[in-house]
Design a protein around this nucleic acid. Structure first.
Length: 401
DNA sequence: CGAGATTCATGTGAAGTATACCTTTAGGCTTAA
DNA sequence: AAGCCTAAAGGTATACTTCACATGAATCTCGTA
């Protein structure tokens, strides 16, 4: 029995991998150069440069679809900036917070607490009045002279959940600081969301605006080539493979994240099949299997109750066509809770959970009046078939079903 | 036949409750002078 | 007497519940042509 497994492991060790440095295909990887974002990089650098002279840089608002290099560009520029500041002994601190992270920065209290923790200020998860948290935050920042650049990634989801008061308070705090200065870089992939902001916040926050256009196929190819050079061993991948990944991703609003994922998955698939080289069929297979949708991750991190809600919808969807009504879903949800011996939440609460899922883009909910037959929301899944299947299995495991 | 009333199923806002955690404060006990 | 520890009192954020009212078009009702 063990022999076959041994053999697998041995083969694995003997065969040389396609990958030299798979990290290069990871979204989080920060490459040396960022192709086709020179202009944006320069612009951002010019905006932030005053920090080196201890002048407060303008706040910046950055828009762009997923995979257009927003986060990457900001990271790149701020890293360089930090490096130079360090060399020249300039007190500069860059803090980056992802506002979408559930339970980390999705309320006013938690966001400020999280930033303060970054400055070494301990703040309990609960118990303190919010303005007390502001005070602690202010004190720790202002205790020494320093420039602070605060990057709020996916800021739109924070505003939708917690309102724009946080931003107002942040800008206001800035004026009360004696020693330090804060600049805010807001990153959002929803262009329309700025219109819903309080006008004071709007004007003070978008002193500078930047829009990241999607990449076209040619640009995507350049990006992939660059990464492929680092990631793959020589002579394991054909140029046509890269072109194909680029083309697929270009079709989808020029999403570089998608392109990188395709390339990585294609490589993994080819490797698993013991191929000599990666070829174009692997890209097609990768497209099928595409794990790009971070939905997987999001769903896994969801609270149990939300997972149950989602699973209920999925379950109904297996036997019926899309428009699912909330009442029906709630019944199924109840039975799931009973089966898993977990608490059954009220319809009121579930209603809110649905809204949260809707905002996360995992579920589509639209209120609809059915006249004589009441008012409800129609639920749909905006996800591809294969993603749904995968999520369903995952939820089954998560919920112990 | 058509305008207006009715109805249904649930959306939605406000206020209340439970839980977990925080700070403050008043004793009470220890300790050192 | 000063110092330190402890436990109770009084507060807050968050997740959830309870209560009550709002919605809005399909259907019903009934006066009128």
């Amino acid at each position: 029995m063990g022999c076959s497994v041994d053999k697998i492991f041995e083969d694995f060790l003997n065969k040389k991998s396609f990958f030299v440095n798979k990290d290069a295909l990871n979204i989080k990887f920060t490459p040396e150069t960022i192709p086709h974002r020179e202009e944006e990089i320069n612009m951002l650098a010019r905006i932030l440069a005053p920090a080196l002279r201890l002048e407060r840089p303008s706040n910046v608002f950055i828009f762009g679809k997923t995979g257009t290099g927003k986060t990457l560009t900001v990271d790149h520029v701020t890293n360089q900036l930090s490096r130079i500041a360090k060399e020249k002994n300039i007190p500069l601190k860059v803090v980056r917070i992802n506002c979408k992270m559930h339970k980390v920065a999705d309320t006013e209290y938690r966001l400020i607490a999280e930033i303060a923790r970054d400055f070494g200020q301990e703040i309990p998860a609960t118990g303190l009045p919010t303005n007390e948290v502001y005070k602690l935050f202010k004190n720790v920042i202002d205790s020494s002279k320093q420039e602070i650049i605060l990057i709020l990634d996916e800021i739109d989801s924070l505003i939708k959940r917690a309102g724009d008061e946080v931003l107002y308070n942040l800008t206001r705090i800035n004026q009360e600081l004696k020693n330090s200065k804060i600049s805010i870089i807001g990153i959002s992939n929803d262009v329309t969301f700025i219109n819903n902001l309080d006008s004071r916040v709007k004007s003070s926050l978008s002193e500078e605006k930047m829009v990241f256009p999607p990449y076209d196929a040619v640009q995507l190819k350049d990006i992939l080539m660059e990464r492929a050079k680092i990631a793959f061993a020589p002579n394991t991948i054909q140029e046509s493979v890269i072109s194909k990944c680029a083309a697929y991703a270009a079709r989808e609003h020029g999403d570089a994240r998608k392109a990188l994922n395709l390339l990585r998955i294609a490589g993994e698939l080819a490797e698993r099949l013991n191929k000599e080289k990666i070829d174009e069929t692997d890209v097609d297979a990768a497209e099928e299997k595409d794990e790009s949708d971070s939905t997987d991750d999001t769903v896994k991190k969801l609270p149990k109750q939300s997972q149950a809600v989602l699973y209920a919808t999925l379950l109904i969807l297996k036997s019926r066509e899309p428009p699912i009504l909330t009442g029906e879903m709630y019944d199924v949800y109840k039975s799931i809770c009973i089966r898993t011996a977990s608490k059954v939440l009220t319809q009121r609460r579930v209603s809110d959970l649905i809204n949260e899922l809707d905002m996360l883009g995992i579920l589509n909910a639209k209120v609809v009046s059915k006249g004589r037959y009441g008012r409800t929301r129609e639920l749909r899944l905006p996800l591809a078939e294969d993603v749904v299947v995968r999520i369903e299995n995952m939820l089954k495991a998560e919920l112990n079903l």
